[in-house]
Every structure is written in C-alpha cells, then in structure tokens.
Design a protein around this nucleic acid. Structure first.
Lengths: 339, 339
DNA sequence: GTGAAAGCGCTAACAC
DNA sequence: GTGTTAGCGCTTTCAC
C-alpha cells in the first residue's frame, strides 16, 4: 500500500528540522537560499506533496466550498457549476456539490452535511420548496461565509448574485407589447422563489408601462417548477381556454419552458401561439417549435458567486457592506415574434 | 466567529475523559449504557458534530471521492453525476468534481490535484485527447482505488462500467439494415476513446452480419468530439457527397449528434436522410429534426461506478478479480425509420 | 469500564 | 537562520 512522504521524512533525510522543511517548502524568507534549494530539490525528487488534510486541521481551513443547487442535470445549474469550478480551480479550492432536488428536507440535510464537513463557505441557490430559512440563518449567524446565487434569500445580509430578473421580464414583455401582443399569459414558477416574484414584477411593470391592466387570470403559478407535467398541462389548458384568448405566453423558467413546449406539442398547438420563455438549454437552437427565449449568463454568474465567496472567506476583517449583483439576461430569437 | 464544540468540551463539561466521550459517540461496547446516554444527550444538546478533517487525518480516510468527467454541462455526465451523488450521499461520501474539457493537460493536472487532496478513490471517464496514461497508472500502482466509467481504460486492471457500446451500435445498425438501409454512414468520435472503437466494432459487425462490405469511406472520425462545428460540417459534407450516397447516418456521441443536426439544419438537409445518434439530452423529444437515438443509462452507470469504488475502498483485503460491467442502452424513436 | 498518552502531518510561537 | 515544542481534534493502544 501507498505511503506518502511527509515533512518528517525530508527532515530526517537531510538532517534538518521539520520546521525548516516546512518553511522552505512555503518559501519563507527566513530560510537561506542554499538550504531552500536543497530541500526543494529533495522534495521534488521523492515526489513530496503536502497533506491537505493535515494543513486543514492545522489552519482550520479546508479549501473546499459547498455548492447547493437544485439539480446538476439542469443546464442552467451545470453551466453555473462550470463557472464556479473554473475559478475555484484557479484559486486552489475544491467544490463539493450537493443537490436539493427542490426539496426542503434535502436542502436542510445537505446544507448541514456540507457545514459539518468543514467547508470554508457555502454557495446556495434556494430550493423551490423552502419557506423556512432557519437552517441557513443559523449557519450565517455562526459566521460561516455564504453567498447566494440565482435563487437568492433576501432576509440574509450577504453577497448575492442573480439575473436582473425583473428587468429581463420587463424587457421581454415590453418587446411583445411593441410587436402588438396585448394579452400575454404568464406561466410562473413556484411563488416563494425570489426569481418568480422578480419576473412577475417585470411582467406587471411592463404592462403598466403600456397602460394595460394586470389580469391575474393570465398568470398561472406552477408549484412543481415544471417537474410535474400534469400541472403545466392544466395551466396551459386553462390559459388557452380564456376568452378573450391570450395572444402570447411568457414562461418564467427552463423546466417550465420545456414542459410547456411538450404540452403544446402534444395538443398540436405549438404553432398556435408565440412563446417567450427562459432557457439555458445547450440545444435550444435545435428545439421545435422554435421560440424566443431569455438566456441567463449562467457561467458568469457562477464565476461571480465564487469570487464573492472567496473574498468573504479570505477577508482579514469582517465585511458589513454587501452587494447584490444583478446580471443582464440576453433575449434571443426575437425575430420569431414579428408578424 | 463560529467555534464548533469538540470532544474535549464535552469531556470537560461532564468530567470524563476525551477517550470516554469518543468511545461513547462511536457507540463502543466498552462504555456503560448510563454514561453513553449522558454523553450522547449532552452532545445533542450542544449540537456537537465531529470534525471530519480531524477524523480524516487520524484515520487516513477522507470520505471524499474525486470524479473526473469531461464536462458537467453535458447531459450524459450530469446524469451520471446525479447517480454518483445519490449513492455517495447515502454512504456518507462527498464527491469532488473535476472537468477535463477533453484536454490531456487538464486531465493530468486535475487528477493529480484530486489525488493530492487525499481523496479515498477516483472515478474517471477519460478525456478524448488522452493517449498517455502514465498519470493514472502511477496512482493505480500506488494503491489508490480507481474505477473507470463510460470512457474506460483497458490497460488498467480495475472495476469498470460502461455501456455495451458495441452491442448498442450493433443493434442500431442491425435495425437500420432490417429497415432496408444499406449504405450507412458513421460519424464517429475521437478514435483513441474506448467507446469510439466499441461503437465502430458494433457497426462493422452488424454490416458483416448482413453480408455487407465495410466501406471505410463511410466513416468519419471527429477528433474534437463535436466541439468543433467546422470539423463536423466537413465530415457531413464529404459523406453526403459520396456516390452512391449514404442512405442513413449513425452518429456515435451526444455532442456529435447535436453538431450534426445543426449542420444538416443549416444546409436545409435535415429531412433528407434518417439519423440514429447517441443522445442523453433531456429535451431530445423537443428537438427537430426528430431522430432515432441511442440513450445510455447514465444515472444507473453513475450509481454502479460509485458502488464499485466504495467496495474497492472499503474492502479489508486486496481485490484481484475485477469486473467490467456493460450496461444495455435503449433505442428510442425507432418508428421514424419506417419507410 | 475508564483514563492517560501518543500520534496522524503540519505550522507557528518561542527560543537561541 | 534554524531548532524545539506545542497543539489543531480525534482515535486507539496500553494501563489500571
């Protein structure tokens, strides 16, 4: 079985003390160049690698970061993780990924699990089902660095980064209005999510800006977030049966966009009404029916989130001023809306 | 700042020794029920959690597992990771994810990085560009438990799990042949990957089974694995310009399927030739043109891989008999091939 | 049945 | 400049 070399081994071999070796390896100014070279050479020769577990125990820093997402197999999140990983790797941090599958229980268990694993900090996108935030508030109070991304939690004061959801929705709806659409249905995500409310806000404000009334009949919340196809099915059915009928649909999440397209396709109604939906799918250009979509800057969001977290972790002094960064989203495939 | 409770704290508070507390917490038979209860109760009261870093250092086990994939933002891999995570979580392991982006350099660096992070074992799917296996062979020789999944490495003797790629390809091609297609073009992945060769093998064997000649002109390898759209573009162009023209296309990876569809669509040739391609996209049912596809059991593969790894890690005795598990793939949307 | 003590690998105060 | 020592939190011989 494999037995890794330790500082002690080097010290013994070179007849110096372990602390000298430690200092030399960390390139301390106290050690003479000559000895440094000797130690470094020998370390390289025996393929010495420091034991990060021991360093963690000693320094009370694990250089690992917990990431809490709904599901890695969701394009938006896998792109975010990609962004997180790119920076984490650069800065010498590991990321430990955990999925809530939008369940409150799993979120609580997994976050506690991550925290007890001595992560240096947490990157969290809230589960759709979570309405009690105690498990997070506790950790935050105890001083664990936390950054929220995407589905942020307003009640906790820390760094946050998310799409400017309200603006994205406002722009999407304004565009529809400018093209002459007037009765715009809205298929919305679970209502306790920050992103749901922000997107709804953009929707209503755009209507108000055009002096159109807000008709709550045109809005359907999907509590399952698109997981439950039946729920989406019923929502669409109800919306399409309204009179006067809606003349466009705005869909406020990836999963809901997919589910809605499935439903419309099954009903052979896919070309009956234009759609603008959120989507970060990597094959959106291959999907049919074609639809206009709002694409979030997921990769960038991941990068910003982890940069914020590392800043929090590595800051020598407590930070009291926090920023909530809002990213622009991109509207794509808009030419489909011309008529 | 947060200061977690330690065994010492408990010992002090209850006037017992740290070793007694440790034993009680680990439910050792040596400790009297009475004392056990007292200690457990107090630990629960002060919300004691053992420090996994200290346990790792002491036990030389980190309960974390490194996972090396090409890209998390690839449906097949995110589904695999989902499967890995489901079991890892259950068994108390963390997974640390690393992406090679199909680059040899990044694979080498990341695998070494994972290993130096004292992971208990490694789950690896090879990068497409890797042809030198020294970095993995070294670790394997040193006794680090390694399991390969999906893109396996034949030269190393350990547990492996992958799709029965040769059978999947054989079945797909046989089906095409049974429907009367005779000149089947094959867009293949990078040629040093195990999966590429296996799929090619299934392809040729199915042809041989039908007494059809193998025409190497009908096969195009894409070294970029679908990342480089231009490469796929040229491949398709050449294949379609062959005379006699191919009457169907078999595509041997997710990314290549997507890229090929894009190319065909751009050339407005999407309905000119039937396609059967590998795909684990979660929106394959929404894609256009519709195509028949081979779907791998990615989630299951992840679960099997990590179970194998944990078996390797937790085995008291060295294991010399290794299994390479082959999973069936599912052929879907076949009705499109009727004509 | 319980405690004392050593040690996992590393670092940092404190000596000299 | 370099060595000595203590200790991070935990487990595990070895005593008693």
């Amino acid at each position: 079985m494999f037995k890794a070399a330790t500082i002690k081994d080097i010290a013994q071999a070179l007849s110096v003390s372990p602390s000298t070796v430690s200092r030399a390896l960390r390139n301390s100014y106290e050690i003479s160049e000559e000895k440094k070279k000797m130690i470094l050479d020998y370390a390289a020769k025996i393929n010495y690698h420091s034991n990060p577990i021991a360093v963690s125990l000693r320094n009370k820093r694990s250089y690992s970061i917990g990431v809490m997402v709904t599901e890695v197999a969701n394009s938006f999140f896998s792109q975010t993780i990609d962004g997180i990983e790119s920076i984490a790797y650069e800065k010498g941090y590991n990321i430990i990924i955990s999925q809530s599958h939008d369940s409150y229980e799993r979120e609580v268990i997994n976050i506690e699990h991550l925290a007890s694993r001595s992560v240096d900090g947490l990157l969290i996108s809230m589960s759709a089902q979570t309405t009690d935030y105690n498990h997070i508030e506790m950790l935050h109070k105890q001083g664990l660095p936390i950054v929220f991304f995407d589905r942020i939690l307003n009640s906790i004061d820390t760094y946050k980064v998310t799409t400017d959801n309200s603006k994205a929705a406002f722009d999407a709806i304004s565009l529809l209005l400018s093209k002459g659409y007037k009765r715009i249905a809205h298929i919305a995500n679970a209502p306790h999510l920050s992103i749901t409310l922000d997107r709804l806000k953009g929707y209503t404000e755009a209507l108000r800006g055009a002096d159109l009334p807000f008709d709550k009949d045109l809005v359907e919340f999907c509590f399952s977030g698109g997981k439950d196809l039946m729920e989406v099915d019923l929502a669409i059915e109800r919306l399409l049966s309204l009179r006067p009928a809606p003349d466009a649909i705005f869909i406020s999440s990836d999963l809901l966009s997919n589910a809605s397209l499935r439903t419309l396709k099954a009903k052979r109604l896919e070309s009956s009404i234009p759609i603008i939906g959120f989507s970060n799918s990597d094959v959106v250009d291959l999907m049919s029916p074609e639809f206009s979509y709002v694409r979030q800057r997921a990769f960038e969001m991941g990068q910003i989130a982890i940069k914020m977290l590392i800043k929090l972790i590595e800051s020598k002094y407590p930070i009291y001023e926090f920023e909530t960064k809002l990213l622009d989203a991109d509207l794509c495939n808009l030419e489909l809306l011309n008529r």
